[in-house]
Amino acid sequence: MDELEAAVVKLLADVDAVALFSPSASEYERFTDDDGVEVLVVGRENTVDSPAFVELPLEFADVRDRIRYGLEGAMEANLVDEGDTLACLLSVFSSDIDAVFRVRVGESVHVGIYGLFMNSRAEPNVIRDVLELVIELGRKGQKGEPVGALFVVGDAGKVMNKSRPLSYNPFEKSHVNVGDSIVNVMLKEFSRLDGAFVISDSGKIVSAYRYLEPSAEGIDIPKGLGTRHMAAAAISRDTNAVAIVLSESDGLVRAFKGGELLLELDPEAY
């Protein structure tokens, strides 16, 4: 058992702060009563009223994404500095905290997931709504069949000028927002249409059936992804929009910003 203890001690040696992911009130209290260690709370809601708090837009199923988002948010709010070492306490399998990660804040965790939500042109809750919609679409599919879809969120004026209609726009003169409850059903029906959905900064669905015409020169996305992903990466570089893709072939949800693939989610995990 000595080896095990030594490993745990090494894991927790000179950490600068503790990041609690969705702690219960009693867990949080135990850590704040213990002086000499900074406590940072990451979660969907600040249920414990912690002064140092990073809000998760969705409960990332991938633990790495969850930690990255939390730490990037903490860096953005100057709660931690580059080079700090953090102990991240999470619940992975049960609802209690059952995992500890030792993470050094630096380039390796900074991939821009936080910026994808918070520093994009579109409002953070609009991006979250679209992601949730796409995850739902990926999980259920269209009448059981897997579907592909492409949503371009934000900077809609520029996106519209870099694309052309494939057919009549079903959202012409409508006032539909991605947050509306009817949208789930509606978009599921419309997702069999070819082309992209264009969504404005405030979440209004501007158009469906858009053929995107960005210049794809110098776009570097993982090999094997198709034209839909290429178009998404290219439009996100040419404009200030975020492009969210549901792959028809592998069923994964990917988000692009500035031409880079920033987030990859498996809808089945949500």
Partner: peptide, 15 residues
Amino acid sequence: IGDEVAIGDDRGIVQ
């Protein structure tokens, strides 16, 4: 959204 307009002296693309 996407139209180029001018309102008074302000010209640009509607967002």
